[in-house]
């Protein structure tokens, strides 16, 4: 009823462009070498996410990558001295699974997130830093945190480390 479908116009096959030699890149434009490093922004202080972050860090360390973990907000809160011994918080959106998760962690003898991070430090180069902004908010000093935390730094210092890293995770 609408007549025959119009045929698309015949287009001759495109000529293959000649292979051009790559332009020499000026020295100042050479991109920085990507460091064999995983950067992690650890924002969360619930054990489900701390567990994930610690396993990522451990896996990366085992695979020969450097790891840079930047604690911010509840990440800092979770690293206060001895807090990990009593921390049983889980993400609010999975609060109904909290009991099952805690039971399974105990039953399967899963290593704690703190033990994972200690193990990661033993096998690789793992640096854990705390965000100075969060430290101010919570009125904390480096000495108030677990000894596994190496240093207090600002966001610019972390961004610089993350910029060179092969990957950056936000947990």
């Amino acid at each position: 009823m609408f007549g025959s479908t119009p045929q698309p116009p015949q287009i001759p096959p495109a000529k293959q462009p000649e292979q051009l030699a790559p332009l020499p890149m000026p020295k100042e434009m050479t991109p920085p070498a990507t460091a064999n490093r995983m950067a992690i922004v650890l924002f969360s202080g619930t054990i489900d996410k701390l567990m994930s972050a610690s396993i990522m860090a451990t896996g990366a360390a085992a695979m020969g990558m450097d790891v840079e973990i930047f604690l911010t907000n509840w990440g800092v809160w979770a690293f206060r001295k001895d807090d990990y011994l009593t921390n049983t918080r889980v993400s609010a959106d999975y609060a109904d699974k909290r009991g099952v998760l805690l039971e399974q962690i105990a039953a399967k003898k899963v290593t704690s997130w703190m033990e994972n991070l200690e193990g990661a430090k033993e096998i690789g180069s793992v640096r854990i830093t705390a965000c100075s902004h969060s430290m101010t908010l919570f009125d904390l000093q480096l000495s108030d945190l677990e000894p596994i935390v190496d240093e207090v730094i600002g966001v610019a210092a972390f961004i610089e480390r993350a910029r060179e890293s092969a990957m950056t995770l936000y947990i």
Partner: peptide, 13 residues
């Protein structure tokens, strides 16, 4: 009986 990532950690160590 060890759960991920422990086998790799023990291996690397």
């Amino acid at each position: 009986g060890q759960v991920c990532p422990m086998p790799i950690v023990m291996l690397a160590k």
